[in-house]
Nucleic acid binder design. Structure first.
Length: 669
DNA sequence: ATAGGGTTAG
């Protein structure tokens, strides 16, 4: 109770002191210009938080209000600016003018607030004023509301300027709609008498494509920009560089070319954004020497520059070096302290290198620094939890996500679905899925895969139907999920129908994974001939997974002839991996062909191939124990006890089986 | 007292 009260006092003080200090300064600096009485009234209005609003005298001049609004915005306190604007409206509803509304709009932190101010503008008949309309457009654009932005844009009374076109295009960029951005750019070019595209227009267009992964288009547009006679500037060079790593074989060549272009245009040295892009570009392409060189030559560095170096090391698989840089950032202190991005990069680096334990350890360390994770951090951590089956930490992360209201974000929710599914909690996965406000393709695919991996084919098919109902177009991943669900449940006709549907209706050409699913589906059901025929129809040669699926089916159904024929084909195709050799060995053994089995085993050993043993994990009290068949994890507490219970269970199972065999004449396989 | 574009983490 006491704590709450003092908290409230603190909030009030902060609320009041800021404006009052500024008000005093205002009174001092502008006293000679008159309006003293009004300023006194305003001061009492701002300070009189406890007085009933209607008892305060109304002011008639908007200037001091506007000055104060501007001061709050310049100090990055949109909350205080908005509170002041509300107070202004409450005290004197007619006072906001063509300066006030743009200022309030700059402080709008959500599209809802922008809409409310829009309504005020309409009510005050100020919506058509160029400044108000311009800032309305900007506010809607910032929040990625292209429909509202378009509405304002179309209603703008004055001649459209390059700037208003640019703002409209940025609305499409923010909400990841590059096609509409492009279409708008086309309309702008068609209305060339009105306004001509400038460097900002091109940069906006570039970023519209960059931000949603259309990197090849970015590089094309960068060329178009140059060809259209528009000089590349620092901003556009930065975006173009960020797209280079995804250009395939030409990536490094393009990167170096644009680097050179930037040097020629004089936008490399002293332009931090370009420096940062360069470090990251070289790092992503594994050119650590170049990345380090650019980093070293940069005079001024900020957090992003350091993060680019961290990212570069992480992307090159040098996780320990990435961590070293982060530690160096911490020790240096000052302006470039590590932030969420730095930590997420290192955590992600360890996670993608397979060291999920280390990733989670670092997440704990980040929490100890009182840094709040964001959606990217949470997605990364949840994926590590899923890999380690660390459901307790996963639930803890879920709880944290709920507290910070990030749990319904698609990145986090998709991570949660995957984590719960992998940890065997399909029902939780479904709850998260149902609670999402908007589901993307990954959400649907994750849910499908969840049911698939638990053998719940009917549920998977129901989700697939819902997906069609929700008008979400399936992709290749979707079909891998449904086909494998069918395969595990032995739903042959359903699977065949889906495979055809995928090719004919959705125009998705089947990948190796799809063929593997189908061969598995047919093979497991005993349709070995059909499976083998499907392999024959494949446009490209089957890979080891496909052959493996067929061999596995031969083993299940004890078809030695088919197995031998298959093995001949595999060996003929020159397939040489341990996995398959082991499979072949086991297969011969299963068919009773011991000599052949031994022969392959010897061959394997001579080829220097050794299979690393498959591992399993179990999570006990937030700690994950890995074990292989026949071994005891040394750190496992109470291992002896566990094995005693296991022994008891085994003997009970044995008794049970003998009884069953006796009663039902079931012969165990 | 007022406007649009840029780099880093999945």
């Amino acid at each position: 109770m006491i704590k709450k009260k003092s908290y409230q006092v603190g909030v009030m003080l902060r609320w009041l002191v800021g404006p009052i200090c500024q008000m005093h300064r205002l009174l001092r600096t502008t006293a000679s210009r008159g309006c003293i009485r009004q300023r006194h009234r305003l001061l009492s209005a701002v300070a009189g938080g406890d007085q009933p609003i209607r008892d305060l005298p109304p002011t008639t001049c908007a200037v001091p209000w506007n000055r104060l609004l501007c001061a709050h915005i310049c100090r990055s306190r949109p909350d205080l600016a908005l509170a002041l604007y509300r107070r202004m409206r409450a005290l004197c509803p007619a006072l906001p003018n063509t300066y006030t509304l743009p200022l309030a709009l700059r402080a709008a932190t959500s599209p809802r607030i922008a809409s409310a101010i829009h309504a005020h503008a309409l009510h005050l008949s100020l919506h058509a004023h160029p400044d108000v309309a311009g800032q309305l457009l900007a506010a809607y654009a910032r929040h990625g509301r292209p429909d509202e932005a378009r509405h304002v844009f179309d209603a703008m009374p004055s001649k459209r300027t390059t700037m208003s076109w640019n703002t409209l295009i940025s609305a499409y960029s923010v909400c990841c709609d590059p096609d509409s951005a492009m279409a708008t750019f086309g309309r702008m070019a068609a209305a060339a008498d009105e306004a001509l595209p400038d460097a900002v227009t091109w940069t906006t267009l570039l970023s519209a494509h960059a931000r949603c992964g259309k990197h090849p288009v970015v590089l094309e547009l960068f060329g178009d920009m140059h060809r259209s006679g528009c000089e590349g500037n620092a901003e556009s060079v930065a975006v173009a560089l960020s797209a280079c790593p995804y250009a395939g074989d030409l990536a490094l060549g393009k990167g170096r070319a644009i680097h050179g272009y930037g040097v020629a245009k004089g936008v490399v040295r002293g332009y931090l954004f370009v420096t940062n892009s360069l470090v990251c570009m070289y790092g992503k392409l594994g050119k650590m020497d170049d990345a380090r060189k650019v980093f070293g030559e940069a005079g001024e560095k900020n957090t992003v520059t350091w993060n680019a170096l961290v990212t570069s090391y992480a992307a090159s698989g040098m996780c320990d070096e990435a961590l070293d840089v982060l530690v160096r950032m911490e020790q240096r202190g000052g302006m470039a302290a590590p932030n969420v991005v730095s930590w997420s990069a290192v955590i992600g680096g360890f996670a993608s290198s397979g060291d999920n334990e280390r990733a989670l350890e670092l997440f704990r360390r980040m929490q100890r620094r009182w840094l709040s994770p964001n959606v990217v951090t949470l997605a990364t951590v949840l994926s590590a939890c899923a890999e380690l089956l660390a459901v307790r930490l996963g639930r803890e992360v879920h709880a944290g996500a709920i507290r910070s209201m990030l749990d319904r974000h698609s990145l986090v929710a998709n991570g949660l679905i995957n984590m719960y599914a992998k940890c065997g909690r399909v029902a939780y996965a479904r709850t998260v899925f149902d609670g999402m406000k908007s589901r993307d393709l990954v959400s649907w695919n994750s849910m499908l895969a969840s049911y698939g991996m638990h053998g719940l084919c009917d549920d998977a098919l129901a989700v697939f139907a819902d997906m069609a109902e929700a008008k979400v177009d399936p992709d290749g991943v979707t079909f891998v999920a449904v086909l494998s669900a069918c395969s595990h449940a032995g739903r042959v006709s359903e699977g065949r129908r889906l495979f055809d549907q995928m090719i004919l209706e959705h125009r998705i050409s089947p990948s190796m994974e799809h063929y593997t699913c189908m061969v598995d589906l047919l093979g497991r059901a005993g349709l070995l001939k059909d499976a083998s025929e499907l392999i024959e129809t494949m446009p490209v040669g089957a890979d080891l997974c496909v052959w493996g699926a067929l061999l596995n089916s031969c083993r299940i159904h004890g078809d030695a002839a088919m197995a031998e024929a298959t093995i001949a084909k595999v060996l003929q195709a020159g397939a040489e991996t341990t996995g398959n050799h082991t499979l072949i060995t086991n297969l011969y053994a299963a068919c009773g062909m011991w000599d052949e089995s031994k022969r392959v085993r010897v061959m394997t050993r001579e080829a220097g191939l050794r299979k690393s043993p498959g591992q399993s994990w179990i999570e006990v009290k937030n700690k994950v124990f890995a074990f292989v068949a026949g071994s005891v994890p040394p750190s496992m507490p109470g291992a002896e006890e566990i094995f005693r219970v296991l022994d008891d269970l085994y003997s009970e199972m044995d008794d049970e089986r003998h009884t069953m065999e006796h009663d039902h004449h079931i012969v165990s396989v």
